[in-house]
């Protein structure tokens, strides 16, 4: 009460000064440590920067390049993105290497107004003359989205089961432990192949993500459970239990803060694993044929023999995007490892 009156009596100047000071304190306590931490943990920063750059590239591309006029006069085409969906519209009369590749045979042959400007189709076209930059721009978010859905669901299911197992012990613990032990030695991808074949329908990107989570949650559950088991024996948890704190309160107030690094690391690992599996599944021809995800591009590359046709641009660019995704996710998880286990002082 007294404090509230005090605040009201403050003059504007004092308030501004206080705010500045508060910001100063905030900077010193919250912001500066991040920079200092970044210097000690460069893998996390580099990984986040790589992923951020890729996302920025995709967003700028989707709202910039992809909205440019289509390469054709076909009235059904509103943007370059449509080129894929409607089955392709000819740019020239055949597959074309990236437009900046002026020394490439197919470009060098073109004459007059057929000769492309330098950045007309920077990643070339496939055999049906579809713009591959537009295809990749749509593929990156689809692939990342599949991974994200799978990661969120895996970690969600994994964390809940881990808590149920570790908290209730007894039968639920035995059952969940057995299930994860069994699940880990079954290759989820193969089970998904069977399910997908027997379902007989194509899986959309988010359905694929959910499917991957259904077989991938065991890894998260295992990681989180082993950590919960360690925490459960910590003196402060024991004290909380003896002082009559409820189970949920112990989980959320005492254990969660210590688990966040592990859960985050497990999430990143799940995302990476799901993306790897989704690309594999799609490359086997079990993806959504109307979606241009990175994995489907790999499928078409293999189907059309892009390698033997010498169409390096068809597979090289998706490959680069895939490598960026995996390397950045690896660096982030290595950085998170450092975070949760500061004894690894040396940078990974």
């Amino acid at each position: 009460m007294a404090r509230a009156t005090g605040t009201r009596n403050l003059t504007m100047g004092t308030r501004a000064r206080l705010a500045r000071r508060r910001w100063g304190v905030f900077y010193q306590e919250r912001v500066e440590p991040i920079f200092l931490y970044g210097r000690r943990n460069p893998s996390l920063i580099v990984g986040l920067a790589m992923l951020g750059t890729l996302l920025l590239f995709t967003i700028i591309g989707l709202f910039g390049y992809a909205q440019l006029e289509p390469h054709t006069n076909d009235p059904s085409q509103n943007s370059r993105l449509d080129a894929f969906v409607s089955g392709g519209a000819p740019v020239g009369d055949k597959r074309l290497p990236p437009s900046w590749c002026t020394w490439c045979e197919d470009i060098a042959e073109l004459e007059g107004d057929k000769k492309p400007t330098l950045f007309q189709y920077p990643m070339g076209t496939d055999t049906q003359s579809r713009d591959l930059l537009a295809t990749n721009l749509r593929g990156i978010p689809l692939t990342l989205g599949t991974g994200l859905i799978a990661g969120l669901l895996s970690v969600g299911i994994g964390t809940v089961t881990a808590f149920v197992a570790a908290y209730y012990r007894g039968l639920p613990d035995v059952a969940i432990r057995l299930l994860t032990d069994v699940g880990i030695s079954i290759p989820g991808l193969l089970v998904l192949i069977i399910i997908r074949i027997q379902l007989g329908t194509e899986l959309l990107w988010w359905q694929l993500g959910a499917g991957l989570a259904a077989v991938g949650w065991v890894f998260s559950s295992r990681t989180v459970r082993s950590q919960v088991l360690v925490l459960r024996e910590q003196p402060y948890v024991e004290i909380a239990r003896q002082s009559g704190m409820s189970g949920l309160a112990i989980i959320f107030r005492e254990m969660m803060p210590n688990l966040i690094p592990y859960i985050t690391a497990s999430f990143v690992a799940s995302v990476a694993g799901a993306i790897l599996a989704s690309i594999g599944l799609e490359a086997l021809g079990l993806g959504d044929f109307s979606s241009p995800s990175l994995g489907m591009t790999v499928y078409w590359v293999i189907q059309f023999g892009a390698i033997t046709l010498g169409m390096w641009w068809w597979w090289l660019f998706p490959l680069i995007f895939i490598v960026i995704i995996f390397v950045s996710l690896f660096l982030i998880s290595a950085g998170l490892d450092e975070w949760s286990n500061p004894r690894l002082r040396r940078q990974v």
Partner: peptide, 28 residues
């Protein structure tokens, strides 16, 4: 790190391109 980040079949694509198509040393 990069090698481990590339899925095996993508690495296969690159190897196939270099050694079987460009250099023509090995069957693909």
């Amino acid at each position: 790190l990069t090698l481990s980040a590339i899925p095996q079949y993508m690495l296969g694509l690159v190897l196939m391109f270099i050694f079987a198509i460009i250099l023509n040393w090995l069957p693909f």
